[in-house]
Design a protein around this nucleic acid. Structure first.
Lengths: 141, 141
DNA sequence: CTTGACCTTCCCATCATGGGAACGCCTACT
DNA sequence: AGTAGGCGTTCCCATGATGGGAAGGTCAAG
């Protein structure tokens, strides 16, 4: 199987397959006499694993560990679960951050008339915001 | 005011101030005879605007537009509101994506014993997952 | 034997940010 | 006045995962 076929079968682009190989996430594929990479079903399965893990937001660095556990038949499921929980915690943190941004923005947008007048609470917030303190306290030049 | 002081006063690192100048987000600062950048209160205010907008997740590209509206005294608040709404929509989309990832992961993690045994539904999902179809259908070599 | 689709490597860009080197400047203290 | 160390400058590199594209080799079908 060529890299293009492996890409279609795995859902990972040929570009990324080469990248994963270059960075050591996957072992170097075999080559034909003319230099073409060759893939077997096993390797496609590994690529699909990677793809799925990426879809769940795992960074490649963590996928290294996941792949190691996947291959290790004497693994302990606790190790897998811990990695998953770390990922869940990281996602939750980012979601909360973004939710806070969104809430603030929604609040500001709700207060903005959104008409042809220049007055805008959004710009007021951005410009003079909550962290003022540079106007008269110190010499500003 | 030197760049270091402007950085402290605005919450934007000196590194980023130079970057914003290089990319044209902010106009080039004045210079002393020896080449040091000089900042006034007005410029610090602009930097704080940028900082605040970044904290709300706006990409620098959008901040260009926000700054333009901020400076434009004949702006229409509808334009500001539209930018904010786009940002809200983008955040909402990303939050939903991450929430979906998190839900899936939580589901899998809940099903994993997390003990010293190798069996693990998380790895089963990643490895054989929902998109099977390479086992017997086509010649895999 | 040609054509077109595929492969190879290499370089560049993203987006915002930090690290660090090499070197110059400014201030305060001795 | 000299010097130390703290700050400034520019330039290069790295991140993380991905895509784009150029230049050139290969393969299979007509």
């Amino acid at each position: 199987m060529n890299i293009g076929e492996a890409a279609k079968a795995s859902g990972v682009s040929a570009k990324m397959i080469r990248y994963y190989e270059a960075t050591g996430l996957i072992p170097a594929a075999g080559r034909t006499g003319s230099g073409y990479r060759v893939y077997s079903g096993t390797e496609v399965q590994m690529l699909r694993f990677i793809r799925r893990a990426r879809d769940l937001g795992f960074p490649v660095e963590k996928i290294v560990a996941l792949l190691a556990l996947w291959r290790d038949r004497s693994r302990q499921s606790a190790d897998v679960k811990r990695l998953a929980q770390e990922q869940i915690d990281g996602l939750e943190k980012k979601i909360k951050e973004m939710q806070a941004m969104m809430d603030t923005l929604q609040h500001l947008a709700d207060a903005c008339c959104g008409n042809d007048r220049p007055e805008c609470p959004i710009l007021v917030d951005l410009g003079g915001g909550p962290a003022a303190g540079l106007s008269k306290s110190k010499s500003a030049a």
